[in-house]
Design a protein around this nucleic acid. Structure first.
Lengths: 144, 144
DNA sequence: TTTAAATAAGATAAAATAGTCCTATATCTT
DNA sequence: AAGATATAGGACTATTTTATCTTATTTAAA
């Protein structure tokens, strides 16, 4: 479904969001431990998220990553995917046709269109405030 | 969404099905031209489909590929994906968690589960007879 | 029976994705 | 001011996916 980059990106962001919601800052080391992701690779992905202003990074001792609490409600999973470069997938033809359209549809165009719309709705409706709350309430998980 | 292998596999099979429905046999050359796929790579994928008894191959001059007409109704897209090794994706956690389950769900488990079920329904409900008919009627297309 | 045309199969190559390592830079603490 | 700890970034490596090339085999037709 998602690329590894997208998976780690989403999980890392939600983890940071959970910490931020509790007023805590977290480090790369903690993140990669808690979401079971390769550390150096996750660092690269976090750099993308910082560049896109989804996550803030603080260098130096006691540095780390955080997300301003008042931003949590406005950040959706689709924003994370956009930042790490993995969102346009869900707006393309399921069978890889360049000119797939309602007028020249691929064999699964109509059925897949509905699914694509639901995927996009899911990605655009899930905000970090809700996701972080669920994480902190212990009703969802990020570890392998 | 699908891997290239899956895309070409589905498109090639539907193309062969369309020909078979008209009582015609088709060749690798024709297939890769008509579905805009790399020839040698498509040949590999067709080998997988032949091994899984989805497609029949005939060697030699005037050889090619075909699907017995009475099989068309029983072959679903999910069978094609199974043959080329690209179906289990839609039964895994969207965020890559090994232990994702209703009891220990990932943050998008419940929403994604519904989507997964619809994807699987789509893959299991689309049979080659219908898909080939649509292709022959000119209401769906396989080319870029 | 030779030739041409077709698929089969194995080896190889190229490209994309995933992941690591090392050095630089910033910053808190002592 | 020095040292420890953190992120930033570039170079590099590994793996997987996608794609090609070459040779063998089969078979219809000339």
């Amino acid at each position: 479904m998602f690329s590894k980059t997208s998976e780690y990106g989403i999980r890392a962001t939600i983890y940071i969001a959970g910490k931020s919601q509790k007023g805590e800052r977290t480090s790369l080391k903690e993140i990669s431990t808690e979401i079971n992701s390769p550390k150096a690779f996750t660092a690269k992905i976090l750099q993308l998220l910082v560049k896109s202003n989804i996550v803030e990074s603080i260098k130096g001792t006691s540095g780390g990553f955080e997300i301003p609490q008042h931003n949590l409600k406005n950040i959706k999973i689709s924003d994370i995917l956009k930042a790490v470069g993995g969102v346009e997938v869900y707006n393309l033809c399921g069978m890889g046709l360049r000119d797939c359209s309602p007028k020249t549809p691929c064999p699964i165009h109509h059925k897949y269109k509905l699914i694509r719309e639901e995927i996009n709705a899911m990605l655009q409706n899930s905000d970090l405030e809700e996701l972080a709350q669920n994480l902190n309430d212990g009703i969802v998980f990020l570890k392998l």
